[in-house]
Amino acid sequence: MTALQVHIEGIGLYGPGLTGWSHARELLGASGPIEIGPVKLPAPEALPPAERRRVGLALKLAMAAGFEAVTQAQVDPGALPAVFSSTGGDCDNCHLILETLASADRTVSPTRFHNSVHNMPAGYWSIATKCMAPTTSLCAYDATFAAGLLEAACQTTSTQSPCLLVAYDTAYPEPLHARRPIPHAFGVAMVLSPEKTARTLCSLSLALGDAPPTVLSHPGLEQLRTGVPAARSLPLMRALARHESGAVVIDYLDDLTLRVEVSPC
């Protein structure tokens, strides 16, 4: 695989104890302890009130990370192609639909049904931003972040135009949680550009390989990295927070990993 060269213009990040990229950057850039606390998200104010009332945690997480990234990049989200990557989509909604189907009254509301599709966040994003640019929604189990990053980087380089990546995961309630034990909600977003600009935060070079994934020394962050597919991004986020140059390796498929060379700007 020929290395893909892209540049990060904006970042958004929300997770347990990580409230936005500015807050997360301070914590990830420091060497002290990090408290893994509740996920705190802003309300999705960009949505009309009717849609805002219907959405759950997955959509709020995706929109919070996405809007933080485009705001930092100072780009118009209404003109930006986007890749939405999630291993399970809206896990709470999935649970409630299955609970309804297992009950005496098996009537599923239309709102629950249309919120169950995997490209739901992409649809609401288009409503919120009035975006007519194409969106891609994908999943790849534990490889979901790397797959999303590769897709967004490929679109950026092939079209020679910026692209937004939003990777997000939430936890299933029981009994699904026992089968897919994602412990926390986590979302990360990046605006990728084919060329450096005055707002470029760092440059990335992506290539497939077989080196072992980068392990985090902080026990709580390492548990988060291995427990949440979207949090496989944490070694890259830590390198960006610390303005470190060099390579990080991210989990991908069983026999492949994604090597990311980071060059801060």
Rank of each mutant, 00 (worst) to 15 (best):
F186W: 15
P194A: 01
W21E: 06
Q223E: 14
A24W: 10
G89F: 12
P42N: 05
R179W: 12
I34E: 07
V39E: 15
T19Q: 10
M1I: 11
R180S: 07
V228I: 15
S245A: 11
P194Q: 10
S85K: 02
T19W: 15
T226K: 09
A231H: 09
L61W: 13
S263I: 09
C94D: 08
R53N: 05
Q155G: 02
E174H: 06
F84Y: 12
L28T: 01
T257C: 07
A46I: 05
D254C: 03
H177C: 03
D76Q: 11
P16K: 04
T170H: 05
H243M: 11
K130R: 15
A178Q: 12
E151A: 03
F113P: 04
R232S: 13
L176K: 00
L27R: 06
A146M: 11
R112I: 09
C139Y: 12
R242A: 02
F113R: 08
L57N: 01
A128N: 04
G187C: 04
R54L: 14
D255A: 00
A65W: 11
G88V: 11
A24I: 06
V108W: 11
T197F: 13
P16N: 01
A128K: 02
V248Y: 09
A189K: 02
R238F: 11
M63A: 06
S22C: 09
A3T: 04
P49G: 00
P175F: 11
V248M: 10
P183M: 15
G187M: 09
E222G: 00
S233A: 05
L221N: 00
G187Q: 04
L192K: 00
T2Q: 10
S203M: 06
P229E: 14
V75A: 01
V166K: 05
T87L: 14
L208M: 13
S263E: 13
T197R: 11
L80N: 02
A140D: 06
M1W: 14
A171H: 06
G10N: 02
D169F: 08
L138T: 01
V262H: 04
L61K: 03
L206F: 14
L150P: 01
A69M: 12
E244M: 13
A50W: 15
A230P: 01
G66E: 08
A198N: 04
S203E: 08
T107K: 07
I36L: 15
T197K: 09
S203F: 11
P194R: 02
C91D: 02
P33A: 10
I11T: 01
S116R: 06
I250V: 13
H23C: 04
G88W: 14
A102V: 03
T71D: 14
A46K: 08
S126G: 07
R180V: 10
G12N: 00
F186P: 00
P219M: 07
V39L: 15
G78R: 05
R106T: 06
R179Y: 14
A133F: 11
G32I: 03
L80R: 02
A65P: 02
E261I: 11
L96A: 09
I36C: 12
